[in-house]
Design a protein around this nucleic acid. Sequence first.
RNA 1: GCAAGGGUGGUCGAGUGGUUAAUGGCACCGGGCUGUAAACCCGGCAGACGGAAGUCUUACAUAGGUUCAAAUCCUAUCCCUUGCA
Length: 306
Amino acid sequence: MNSINSIVGPTASGKTEIGVALALHLGNAEIINCDSVQIYTGIQIATAKPSTEEMRGVPHHLIDYVAPEINYTAADWAKDAAEKIGEIEKRGNVPILVGGTGFYLRALCQPFFESPKTDEKLRNKLTELKEKKGAEHLHKILQKIDKVSADKLFPRDYVRVMRALEVYFQTGNRLSEIQPKREKPPEFAARIKIFALNPPRAFLYEGINKRAEQHFASGLVEEVKRLRESGLRDDTNALGAHGYRRVCEYLRGERTLESTIEQTKQDVRNYAKRQLSWFRREVNVVWLEGFGDAKEIQDKLFELCS
RNA sequence: GCAAGGGUGGUCGAGUGGUUAAUGGCACCGGGCUGUAAACCCGGCAGACGGAAGUCUUACAUAGGUUCAAAUCCUAUCCCUUGCA
């Protein structure tokens, strides 16, 4: 069986360009988006979704297909992506995974344990409790019901603490006991090859800053205003995305426009670094030391994929 | 020119004679991540050597001085801000 290539790397490293270039090089390839924000419809300007021109005729999947008020998850994506891989290969084409959400890719290769969907009501309740009594309080509760999980987590890491609590309250099982029971990886998992872009840090940051400026110049604030007026809530995943989150704060009167732009740049820079951290830990990654739109990097990738 | 306040590590900003290589925030660097992941969290951060305990060097505008001891007190110089001219 053919290998499935995936292009990862920090934001603004040129994944879109090199992904499309590889697809065209291979001839019969289709791209599956692996980015947790580009899946949403409605949010547009600050998401770096490829335009029709940038797609250059290459079919793209899992882009712009989830309503922004929905909180989509890694497990949802893994399921959808697995399905797409099947469909694409069935028609004799080659799937290419492109995107910077390492967690999604891992969810695809190493599926999670069986678990019910998020119970929004329960989550809201826990969130409220956290607001009122603090993250440490939730951690104390977890210590009582699942000490093993609690000991592995920092008290302030309320997202994971909440998840452990949710699992217990929804299923009656301790996370520490069911977490090791992963589902079997799908057949194609072993065929996935990861290529990671790693441009020089200073240039990457420069690009990130410039791109953020462009987003604001292209009417990001207006876009967020419209979305909020249409009823989209600030606490959705979609409006929590880079750019959107800070503009919401601005529109709520919590910061100046200048600080909104600067904070957005910083958010994205910090994010890029965390992405790199993630991919460094991933085994079997082939690193491409440069931007994805560089000819020599693309040629190197073609060589490695042939 | 006079008066007042001030110049601290990449940056903002504490410290006002002795556990001070100097609180804290941010940048920046490194790390973690099992259904929120563009989320959430942890660590490092003067330099050199060391695995570490630690050792050494250079540091609070500049140059001197007082003191057992100075970022902190004194003198001079340079620069900045504000008020009066």
